[in-house]
Amino acid sequence: MSIETPVDQPEPPTNRPDPTHRMKEWFSRDYVRKIIAIFIVLTIIIIPIAWLVIHFLELSGGPASSIMEELETTIFVFTLVSAPLMAITAAVLVYSLFGWGSIKSEEPPMQENPAIRTNAVAVIGWTVATSLLAAFLVIWGMVELATITADSYGSTPASQQPNATKPIDVNVTGQQWVWTFEYPDQERIQSDVLVVPINTPIYFNVTSKDVIHSFWVVEMGVKIDANPGAVTNTGFTANKLGTFNIRCAELCGLHHAYMETNVQVVTQDQFDSWVREQGGKRTV
């Protein structure tokens, strides 16, 4: 086609249909419209599950740290973005069962169905959609992982953390089947209940005396394995007063089920007096 073609000349008459014709035709098909309707209804039904999941997560006392809050946001968002994919699969399933119908017979049915070998639009569309979804999940997950790593210990030593409040180190030792918490900066007092002040970063050096345990502070959303012969790190900043659960999340022998204790989040004053009672000295 040369550029000198006069613009005012009318297009030669053809019976070529409008480029959007096929799409329009496809969307005008009865079954397509019904599947879209089922898809929308299912999406509306599935989306509230996001709130339900968060409700179950919070049944035991709710998020008590920023890590757990971020984690709940992640679960919420993941549920929302997966809902359409879930709904479209379920919609085809439902319509296949009840819409296109089924044949009840003893013999192989004579009636054959349309021989659809492939469909470029469906294949490319599905690939692009699932890849985009996966890409979103990966990027969100990585950003979130970086955030919670910064919120917890990560790989930065406690002394180099840029927080205004002086952080507290706690050495956690798992052994069959108890947790021991040692406060190295508070005259190495030891306790079998974790007591932490609110709004203060707590850093854990976790290890084990015998087998692998997993240190799980449930409502803080923090978990790290306690390995014999190695120290692992994690941490959190509690932002809610109260008593929360610590459980062992790795099978560690006979009484694994009973290897649980509490974390008590208290005010700074209460924490200081607790430390004095235990024979340590003030933190600040």
Binding site: W100, P109, Q111, P114, I116
Partner: peptide, 17 residues
């Protein structure tokens, strides 16, 4: 992909029940 293959095979098919 495997899910799409299954859904595509179902597409517009009257299933033998």
């Amino acid at each position: 992909f495997l899910v799409l293959v299954m859904l595509g095979t179902m597409w517009r098919g009257k299933a033998w029940n």
